[in-house]
């Protein structure tokens, strides 16, 4: 690293011994902490901390949580595998394989519908692009945790049926 061009003495300011041990600065910092502690003891209702996971924050209705796939009345997925969501997805996290549906009225359905939740950026473009209202991010689920990466790659059955932690 070069210090050329800097005014003399600008990088190594001389400090006194009293300043260099930071004693008063530490005391001042602790003062702020203790001040908050005392204030919060007497004003518990104003405390911003939530007792998660017993207590949960209420999000707005427009919050985009984990995706779900909608069903038709007969319980089959509403999705027709048009791949609009996969096309519009900026994170390229949706993967659909289409297949022939036995009912010629429906014609096409997703044989696999896989979302990689780790890649997803929760932008909501997929639900906006969907012509069938088949995918929604209105579950309110934000607790997406697992102990291995492949558990974040969720399939059609999971997206259709899993309601754990859901608020819908």
């Amino acid at each position: 690293m070069s210090f050329e061009g800097l005014p003399k003495g600008s990088c190594a300011k001389k400090t006194s011994f009293r300043d260099s041990i930071y004693f008063w600065e530490i005391v001042r910092g602790l003062g702020v902490t203790i001040g908050h502690l005392v204030y919060n003891i007497f004003h518990t209702s104003e405390m911003p901390t939530l007792q998660y996971p017993e207590e949960k924050k209420i999000y707005s209705d427009r919050f985009r949580g984990r995706h779900r796939l909608m069903k038709r009345e007969d319980g089959s997925p509403r999705c027709v595998a048009c791949q609009m969501c996969a096309t519009v997805c900026p994170a390229d996290c949706i993967n659909i394989d289409a297949a022939e549906h036995p009912d010629s009225e429906i014609e096409k359905f997703p044989e696999t519908f896989v979302i990689d939740l780790l890649r997803c950026v929760y932008c909501g473009l997929c639900e906006e692009a969907c012509p069938c209202d088949a995918i929604r991010l209105d579950t309110g689920i934000y607790e997406i945790a697992a102990d291995s990466r492949d558990k974040f790659v969720v399939d059609k059955e999971f997206l259709l049926n899993d309601r754990e932690h859901g608020s819908y």
Binding site: V80, A81, C82, M84, E107, K108, P131, C132
Partner: peptide, 9 residues
């Protein structure tokens, strides 16, 4: 107008 399921789309 079944473009979503039409291969020609």
């Amino acid at each position: 107008v079944d473009c979503p399921i039409c291969d020609q789309a």
